[in-house]
Design a protein around this nucleic acid. Structure first.
Lengths: 145, 145
DNA sequence: AACATATACTTGATAGCTCAAGCATACATC
DNA sequence: GATGTATGCTTGAGCTATCAAGTATATGTT
């Protein structure tokens, strides 16, 4: 990489690792959920009422509202989520994590954790923590702009 | 994120930041090259003869051979790269960085560096370096499997 | 109250990739 | 040297997400 700017180098590494990671995720998860579906289930579960507006979900997982609409259709069909409405605003169609979705998420999380241990087996916890914090810092910065 | 496994957390942050980054890249680069095109030009330039086999290029940028084939077609049309063959093996169609491509890369790199400075302005160099090294380490580990 | 503007979502068209299959060449083995 | 298998690349079909435009509701302005 000789004279390449450090920042650029970091961003290139980021892209590379992420590309490798998501492929490995899809392979490792087998016939279960895809990465985007996993993200939806995950963030839904994180929210206190397990219920979110489509647009907030989109922002969380880094996708357009349109993308979320298309993802949710089949997910609702197979009973992973349910759609509803909220009282305060008739424009929003809320997304609710259903029982099936919760189960699927638990399965996926379990396999995901094994995958993680596998990948990080020889990396020090402190290092991962530091890198993770850096990512959050960068992510926040970018989001604000 | 309460009780979520640290590794999982890292991988989620990775995905999020990468998604934000590539969008920001495409926005910031304006009507210039897209991210994948940039990667092609960049890695071509990095190779000593500025010439690579399509398949090595594919592996570098984390894409299938098929994807590379489709990307290169328009890039050759507008004079960013040239296709050739190598003496040792008649199956390969080599990719050569052309003058136009080199110019485009220089422009993109310049803008990319500014983007990088903007994003990392308040992050310590040591931290970036550490995170970057961690990414390389993970990337290598994954590639071997 | 009327109107302009913003927000939440959906939908048609399309971009950018993958996967599976195919073709051509290379390499290994018998 | 014929035959089987691996490699490099391309191509058709299909998937996933985007963008631009459209609909419905909300909010702010006069």
């Amino acid at each position: 990489m000789n004279t390449i700017n450090l920042n650029v180098k970091f961003l290139l590494n980021l892209a590379r690792v992420q590309s490798i990671m998501s492929k490995r995720f899809d392979r490792g998860m087998g016939n279960g959920v895809g990465f985007s579906e996993f993200l939806i289930l995950f963030y839904l579960n994180q929210s206190d009422s397990q219920k979110m507006r489509r647009i907030d979900l989109a922002e969380k997982i880094g996708m357009t509202a349109s993308g979320v609409t298309r993802m949710l259709l089949p997910m609702e069909k197979i009973g992973l989520i349910k759609s509803g409405s909220i009282d305060e605003d008739a424009r929003v169609r809320s997304v609710l994590l259903s029982e099936g979705g919760k189960q699927k998420l638990d399965e996926a999380l379990e396999r995901f954790e094994i995958l993680g241990e596998d990948i990080f087996s020889s990396v020090k916890i402190k290092e991962i923590e530091a890198a993770s914090n850096l990512l959050v810092e960068i992510g926040g910065k970018i989001l604000m702009s």
